[in-house]
C-alpha cells in the first residue's frame, strides 16, 4: 500500500476528524492561534507603521526590523518564549507568531502612508480638515489597498508558521504531522501536511480576493 493510499484511508476514517485531538479540534486550535497572533500584530504594527509613515520617518527602522526577523528561526522563538516569563500554553505561540506577522504589516502601513500624494494632503488641509479628519477621511482610505496587501502576506505567513508550533507541543494542525512521526504513520504525516498546505493556500486565495475587492482598478498592479 503506497503512502497516498494510506493518506486517503486516514482521511476517510471519521474518528480522525471528530476525536478530541482530531482534525476539527486541531483546525479550530490552529485558527485560534493564528487569529490571536494576527490581531496582536495588527494592534501593534498598524498604529506604529501609520504614525511613522505619516511623519515620513522610520524607513530605516522598518527595513532593519524585517531583515532582522528573517534571520531569527521560528523554531528558536517558539522554544525560548515558553521558558521565559511568558509561560507555557497558547500565549508564547501567539506571541512568537505575532513577531513574524508584524514586519509585513508595519512595512505596508508605512508605505501606504508615504504613498499618499502630498498635494492631496495639502488640498485636504486647505479644506480645513483637522489632523484626525485627514487621517480618517483621506489617508486611511487611500492606504487601504496597502494595508490589505500586508494583511494577506502576514496572514499566510502566520497560518504557515503555526504548523511549527507542534515541534514544542504548541497545538494546531502541525500536531497531526508530529503525531504521525511518532506513530511512524506515513499516511497521517501526509494527511497532516496536506491539511496545512491546503489551509495556507485557501487563506492566500481568500485574502487575495479581499485585496482585489478593496483595491481600486487603477491601483491593481501590486
Amino acid at each position: 500500500m503506497n503512502s497516498v493510499q494510506q493518506m486517503m484511508n486516514w482521511l476517510n476514517d471519521p474518528l480522525n476528524w471528530t476525536n478530541p485531538d482530531g482534525i476539527v479540534a486541531r483546525l479550530l486550535e490552529h485558527l485560534r492561534l493564528c487569529g490571536g497572533a494576527l490581531l496582536l500584530a495588527c494592534l501593534v504594527a498598524w498604529p506604529t507603521g501609520i504614525a511613522l509613515g505619516r511623519r515620513g520617518r522610520g524607513s530605516g527602522l522598518v527595513v532593519a526590523l524585517s531583515n532582522a526577523t528573517q534571520a531569527i528561526p521560528v523554531v528558536a522563538l517558539l522554544t525560548i518564549l515558553p521558558l521565559t516569563a511568558v509561560g507555557f500554553g497558547a500565549r508564547p505561540v501567539i506571541l512568537a507568531l505575532a513577531v513574524f506577522a508584524a514586519p509585513p504589516l508595519l512595512a505596508t502601513a508605512h508605505t501606504g502612508m508615504r504613498e499618499v500624494d502630498a498635494e492631496v494632503r495639502d488640498a485636504a488641509r486647505g479644506m480645513g480638515l483637522s489632523g484626525w479628519q485627514l487621517l480618517w477621511r483621506v489617508e486611511l482610505p487611500l492606504g487601504v489597498p496597502y494595508l490589505a496587501a500586508g494583511l494577506r502576506t502576514a496572514a499566510v505567513q502566520v497560518v504557515a508558521t503555526a504548523g511549527l508550533a507542534a515541534l514544542v507541543n504548541g497545538g494546531g494542525l502541525g500536531m497531526i504531522v508530529a503525531a504521525g512521526f511518532g506513530l511512524q504513520s506515513a499516511g497521517q504525516i501526509l494527511a497532516g501536511g496536506l491539511l496545512i498546505a491546503g489551509l495556507a493556500l485557501l487563506v492566500e486565495a481568500l485574502l487575495a480576493g479581499v485585496q482585489r475587492l478593496v483595491t481600486p482598478g487603477s491601483l491593481r498592479r501590486i
Partner: peptide, 17 residues
C-alpha cells in the same frame, strides 16, 4: 510562488515518503 506558500511542515511531510 505556490511552492513558497506551502508551509515548511507541510512541504517536508510531502517529501518524507
Amino acid at each position: 510562488g505556490v511552492l513558497y506558500t506551502i508551509p515548511s511542515l507541510g512541504l517536508f511531510s510531502f517529501i518524507v515518503p
